[in-house]
Design a binder for these strands. Structure first.
Lengths: 201, 201
DNA sequence: CAAACTTACTGAACGGTGTTCATAATTTAA
DNA sequence: TTAAATTATGAACACCGTTCAGTAAGTTTG
């Protein structure tokens, strides 16, 4: 039955149409402007139609999040060129911070916003998991040269450090430093480098 | 003129009434349930009345944030008993994490939510600043025993570490660890302790 | 004391949000 | 061609923050 196949295809195309419009708006106009109604407007469908393809907004955001993680994965794939694990860790940390500072809305979606973490609880946040696994692998490979005793706690610590720096910045808490914007950016990189210095034996 | 004084008093009382109701709801029911309309309901006034005492919701949240910082300051005042600066840092970090994990909604307000950071930009986030200053003082006092070269970068690093741990948790990103809830809590403390070990000479 | 003025408060509305559902339009099957 | 199934939507619901004309209360003045 070819019709069923076409229907299947059309369903996927519609989902793509919605996803792409949503991602566009998200990257260009940020989270706040990305409402179901606005997305519907953009693709010239009724808001109700979107609900035929996505259960609710959370599910849609969860889809966006997954794509955002693919973006970050690509950044890592292309940017981590070193062979030496410690160097890899350095590159990874730098790329992470750059990604976060350069795509604050996507970063929000991936690591800060509460919403999409509620959708499909049993999908286990697969996209995020694999990024974390990637970090764990690097730390595992470098464990002899690191002061960490436990790979998972090490990975968590690394991640927390860079996430802490990025998220405090993204959410405007670095005002307390009373230091100009670009100076803060430098401080972040210094802090990251210093951190890796401190955890290497 | 006694009347003007009374009016002044009544104005302050009304602001307190609103603040208290808002704080109550925030702590008890979280951010989402705390709407202007709900607060108005609780204090048995019209929503419009609240706007006679607070310019907008941001200003109200900013007030809540300030009070939350006072709470945290009290936690520090009572909980930091050590004399030795490194020990003080240890205590502070522990208290910070406990506070964040124990009061996730307040933590949100103080360090994650975007809203109240827009209100009154020139007030310079005084409440947050003094908490950071407090951290800087401790690090300054311990600088000889720390691997930091710069007090501010050191303080930023410390803060980022604990904030990273807490905020990843509060926002449900620690699911990737695939480890039970209480185990994560332990890992946090280990990570914090380890971090302080790593930055001490 | 009554009238004029000032202040405090509110109901109703505006434009926005996510979401649902009966109904209409279209496509497929008989 | 007609009946059945799918797909799309308009209108509504219940929220949200916010504004503003109008009312009610308190204060000052004649």
């Amino acid at each position: 039955m070819g019709i069923t196949d076409r229907k299947e295809r059309e369903k996927l195309e519609m989902r793509r149409l919605i996803m792409d419009a949503a991602m566009d708006m998200f990257v260009k106009d940020g989270y706040e402007k990305t409402s179901i109604r606005n997305i519907a407007d953009k693709i010239e469908y009724s808001p109700a139609t979107i609900y035929l393809y996505y259960k609710d907004k959370d599910e849609l955001l969860w889809g966006l999040q997954t794509e955002a993680f693919e973006k970050l994965a690509n950044v890592f794939r292309e940017g981590i060129t070193a062979i030496e694990p410690i160097q890899q860790l350095r590159q990874m940390a730098k790329l992470y911070v750059e990604f976060g500072m350069g795509n604050p809305d996507l970063y929000d979606l991936m690591f800060i916003i509460r919403s999409p973490m509620n959708a499909e609880k049993n999908e286990e946040w697969k996209s995020g998991s694999s990024a974390f696994q990637f970090l764990m692998n690097i730390i595992q490979a470098a464990i002899d040269k690191l002061k960490y005793e436990n790979v998972m706690i090490g990975a968590l610590s690394c991640w927390s450090m860079v996430h802490g720096l990025v998220s405090l910045n993204v959410r405007g808490r670095c005002k307390v430093l009373e230091v100009p914007e670009d100076k803060v950016q430098d401080m972040l990189q210094i802090a990251v480098d210093q951190y890796i210095d401190n955890i290497t034996r």
